[in-house]
Nucleic acid binder design. Sequence first.
DNA 1: CTGAAAGCGCTTACAG
DNA 2: CTGAAAGCGCTTACAG
Lengths: 348, 348
Amino acid sequence: MALRKKQARVTIRTVAEDAGVSVAAVSKVLRNAYGVSAELRAKVEVSMQKLDYRPLAVARGMRGQTYTLGILLPDIRNPFFADIMMGVNSALERTQYQPLLGISQSASSIELALVDAMNDRQMDGLILVGPRMLAGELAVIAERTPTVLIGHHPPEQSNFDAVNNDDQLGATLVVRHLAEMGYRRIAFLNQLLDDSERALVTSQREIGYLAAMANIGLGSHARVIRALQTPRETQLAARHALQSRSPPEAIFCWTDFIALEVLSVARDLGLRVPEDVAIVGYDNTSYCDLAQNALTSIDQSGQVLGLQAARLLVERIDGRTAPEHFIVAPRLVVRASSSGARRKVPAE
Amino acid sequence: MALRKKQARVTIRTVAEDAGVSVAAVSKVLRNAYGVSAELRAKVEVSMQKLDYRPLAVARGMRGQTYTLGILLPDIRNPFFADIMMGVNSALERTQYQPLLGISQSASSIELALVDAMNDRQMDGLILVGPRMLAGELAVIAERTPTVLIGHHPPEQSNFDAVNNDDQLGATLVVRHLAEMGYRRIAFLNQLLDDSERALVTSQREIGYLAAMANIGLGSHARVIRALQTPRETQLAARHALQSRSPPEAIFCWTDFIALEVLSVARDLGLRVPEDVAIVGYDNTSYCDLAQNALTSIDQSGQVLGLQAARLLVERIDGRTAPEHFIVAPRLVVRASSSGARRKVPAE
DNA sequence: CTGAAAGCGCTTACAG
DNA sequence: CTGAAAGCGCTTACAG
C-alpha cells in the first residue's frame, strides 16, 4: 500500500511507450538531433505534452550535458552583479540552459572550492566574474570546462573567452573629467591586491589612472590608496587620507560600493562634496542616482557584459575553441559628487 | 592518439581497485554508512586521497542525493539577501552540501520555473526566500522536496519549515518610536500585492503597522501607500504622497532599499529629514549606516535567518517531518532619519 | 563486515 | 529514418 511518491515518475521510457516509439527516438527529439521524421517528432511531442514529461538533467548529464551553467560571483553585496545577472538571464531565456549561482566572497580559496563543486555537478560551462585565481589555475579550469570570464583581462593566448569594459579608458575618462573640473590632487582608492592579481579590472583601472595623471601633467599628484574591501577598512583608509596634511581634492574609487563609504566618511568629517572633495565611483549602479549620493561614475553596461558572456559561453559549449575577447566602451556619467563646484583651473 | 581528456576519470571503481575492495565498500565509506570496519575505511580513505577522487554529484543523484541545495532569491539587488546567504554558507560549511542560487526577480512565474529547474537537477532541498507563490503551490513543492521558507509566514499546518522575524512586532516598534518622536501622520509604504500574498512579510508588517497605529490612538492617521517595487514607481508614489495636500510626517517603508529611494525624493523636493519628514526602513542593511543615509531601520538578523533555515533544511532532509517555525526578535536601530528633530509631542 | 549484481534515466555508437 | 543494447558513475537491496 505504498501510497504517495509511488506514482512512478514519468521517464523517457514512459513517453516512448505512450508514443509507441523507441527510447532512443525520444532522446533524439529531446536533443533536436538530426535523423527524426516529422511524424515521429510530432507523436513524441504530443506524448511529452500529455504526460507533462520533464527530462532529468542529472541523468542527461551522466552521458551528455546537464544544461546547467555555473556563475561564480565574488560578492552578492555589490549591486553591479545584479546587472550582470539580468544580462545572463535574458541571453539564456529561450535556451535549455539554466544558470545557477555560487558566491565566493572574494576569496580565491572559496572560488576554487566552488569550481570543484560545480565540476562535481557536471556544469556544462562556467562564467567567472572577477575571479581572484592565478592564470595557471584559470587555464586548468578552462581546459576541463568551457569558461568565460567577466572583469578579468586575459593574457594574449588563453583557452577561455573574456568580456570586459575598457578599464584603462574608463579610468582615463574619470581623470580627465576631474582635471577639467579643476581638481589636481586626485587619488585612486584601490583594493589591496597582490602581484598575481594584475589581470583584475581594478589593476587595469589603476594603470589607466596613473597613465592619465602623467599624461595631463599631474603625475606628481598621483596617489594610490589601498584598502581591504570591508566597510571598516575602507572607512579607515578614507578617513586617514582626508585628514592627512595634504589631503586629496578628489578620490576616484574602484567601484561605487566603495565610493559610497568614502562619501559617508567625507560627510562625517564635515567636508562638502564636491567643494572640499570630489568623489567618483565605477559601475554606475542604481545607487548612484539617489539624490543623497549623486555619485559620478563610469557606466560599463553590466547587462551587456552578462549577455555577451552567456552568448560566448553557449558558443564555446557548442564547439568553438578560438578565444574571443569582447570589449564594451565605458561611458562617464557626471553627477553632483564631482561637478558644480566653482574651482579655479589649476595654475599651469 | 586521443591526447587530452583521455586521462580516464577517477571513479569509484578506480578507488576500489586501488584499495583492493569492492565498489560497494567505497560507496559506504563515502556515505559514512554503517557496516564498514575501521581497516577497510582507512584503506579506502588512503586511496581516495592518493587518487584525488571526487565523487560525481550528478551520478550520486541518480540513486541517492546530489548534496546540492537550491536557494531561491527574489532579487539579488536587495543587500538584505547577502546577509541571509552568509548565514546559509556558514551553516553548510562543514557539510557535504553545496548551496546554489537561482534568482526569480520577484515574479511568481519565474519562481515556479526555477523550482522546476531545480527539481530537474535533483536538488536535495530548497530554501525559498520571500516566495510569491500561492499556498497550494508551496504545498505541492514541499510534498516533493524538503523545503524551508524564509520571510513567508506559513499557515497553521504545513509540510515545510519557516524562519522569520516577528514582522508585526517589528512594525509596532517603528510606529511606537515615531509616535514618541512626535510624528502623527505616519504612512506605511508597501509593495503592491494581491490577496493571495497575505503570507508575505510585507503584509505582516502592514498588519502590525495598522494595529499599532490604532492602539496608540493614531488610527485615523494611518495611511498605506502601495507601489510596485521598481525605482520609478517607488519615486512616483513617494513624490505624490509628499506633495499631497496633507503629506505624511513620517514614511515607514517595508524595506531599506525602498526607503533609500524615498530619502532621495525627499531630498529632491528640498525637504529636511527628519525635520520635515522622517523615514524608516526595514532590514538594517549595510547601507543604513552610511552618513548620507543614516536610516533608522529594523534589524532582523539576516545571518541568523539564513543559518537557521539551512540547519532546519538539513534536519528535514535527514527525515524530520514535523514542521518547525523559527522566529527571530526584531530590534529597532535608531538613526538620524527619524530622530534628533525638535517636534512637539502631539496635542492629545 | 564485505561484495556481486541490478538499476537510476538518460545518451551514444552501432545495426538494420 | 528507427531501434536494441551498452554504458555513464554512483547507490541499493540482497547474499554470503
